[in-house]
Design a protein around this nucleic acid. Structure first.
Lengths: 105, 105
DNA sequence: GTAAAATATATATAAAAGCATATCACTTGA
DNA sequence: TCAAGTGATATGCTTTTATATATATTTTAC
């Protein structure tokens, strides 16, 4: 299923849980049916961009494509943003790098 | 088709062209058939994660999910990385933010 | 133990991915 | 100037699979 994808799914699920949303609640807000979210989180589906974007939006996540060379800088930003706990008291969403250094596909 | 997705597709295509790859060449290297790349770039397909990742890898792009709050910092990194021309003389890949500020889906 | 909430499974349908082939854009040579 | 050849992108059709709806199962709170 690929390392990259696994990281992504973990990020989505963690963000959902952090926000205290059930699959159903997330489903309602995002328009993605709960049953599908279940499959997505279980990793038995290769989800489409539109699904990913719909979920990310509700979870206050954004998607980026960036040159590999800027990867470490970006990671460090994400890490610091995720550091322990953040400025404004809201539960912080997870963020992970979806790198391809490992094997995928 | 959604602003987010359009940005992404533009980034993919620009990166391919910058690298001087034909759809076929990219197809061979990524494992995604040329016919499908054609459809993807034309925007008449809602591609799956695995396809996106396969293409991005060949194009020296990486995929990130990050909290919205770190978006501007990340964008600035990407921008500077893309500034005019880059350090090592290789043609620089494009990078875009896939933000959700606009409407999508 | 039961009700309610949350997640998972079954089945049907729509759409992406794959393969073959067609079309288009340029050359170049007769 | 136009036919043939070549490289590139697009289109048609089939297969595979994500997605949607409905329902079942599992988990949690009382």
């Amino acid at each position: 299923m690929g390392y990259v994808t696994e990281q992504l799914l973990a990020a989505l699920k963690e963000a959902r849980v952090r926000k205290g949303l059930s699959q159903r609640a997330l489903g309602v807000r995002s328009g993605v049916p709960q049953s599908h979210i279940s499959k997505i989180e279980a990793g038995d589906v290769d989800l489409r961009m539109s699904s990913l974007i719909a979920l990310a939006r509700v979870l206050d996540l954004e998607l980026f494509v960036a040159p590999k060379k800027s990867a470490t800088a970006i990671k460090s930003i994400i890490d610091s943003s995720n550091g322990a706990y953040n400025q404004d008291d809201e539960p912080l969403p997870a963020a992970y790098n979806l790198d391809g250094d490992e094997n995928d596909e």
